[in-house]
Amino acid sequence: MAPPGSRRWAYVRVMAGTILGGALERMEERLRRYEAHMLAKAREAQQLQDEAQLLPDS
């Protein structure tokens, strides 16, 4: 049987891993949403630029 101190550290390591893993997952999700937002913004800017080129100059 393991000494009580080592068991405590095992629980601490498991909990820390769980918390950090969840935080990293949320960060990755936020990064994916940010990248999708920036791509949509770039497409919109390109579309506006293309439309502006089609309009006659006044």
Score class of each variant (00 low, 15 high):
E44M: 07
V14M: 13
R32H: 06
M27P: 00
G22I: 01
Y11W: 15
M38T: 05
E28R: 14
P56E: 00
R7C: 07
G17M: 07
M27S: 03
L55E: 05
E28H: 09
D57F: 02
A10G: 15
Q49C: 08
S58R: 01
M1C: 08
S6P: 03
L39T: 09
A23V: 05
T18I: 12
A45C: 04
G5R: 09
E51Y: 07
A10S: 15
A40T: 01
E29M: 08
P3H: 14
Q53K: 15
L24I: 05
Q53W: 15
D50A: 13
P3S: 13
D50S: 10
D50L: 12
R43M: 07
Q53C: 06
Q47Y: 10
Y34L: 13
V12R: 10
G17N: 12
M38N: 08
E51P: 00
G22K: 02
Q53N: 12
L48T: 04
M1P: 00
P3F: 09
P56A: 01
M15A: 15
V12K: 06
D57Q: 11
Q53F: 14
P3Q: 11
L54H: 01
S58W: 04
L24D: 00
Y34D: 07
A36I: 02
A10N: 14
E35I: 09
E44K: 07
T18A: 15
R7G: 05
Q53S: 12
Y11V: 13
E35F: 03
S6C: 11
A42W: 01
S6D: 11
A42D: 01
R13F: 06
R43V: 02
R8H: 12
E25C: 12
P4K: 01
R43Q: 09
L24T: 02
R13M: 06
G5S: 11
V12L: 15
G22T: 02
L24V: 04
E28S: 10
Q46P: 00
P56T: 00
M38C: 10
M1Y: 08
V14E: 13
S58K: 03
M15S: 10
R32S: 03
G22F: 02
G21M: 04
Y11K: 14
R43H: 09
Q49L: 14
S58H: 02
K41E: 12
A10H: 15
E25K: 12
P56N: 00
D50E: 15
L24N: 00
M38R: 13
R8K: 14
I19H: 03
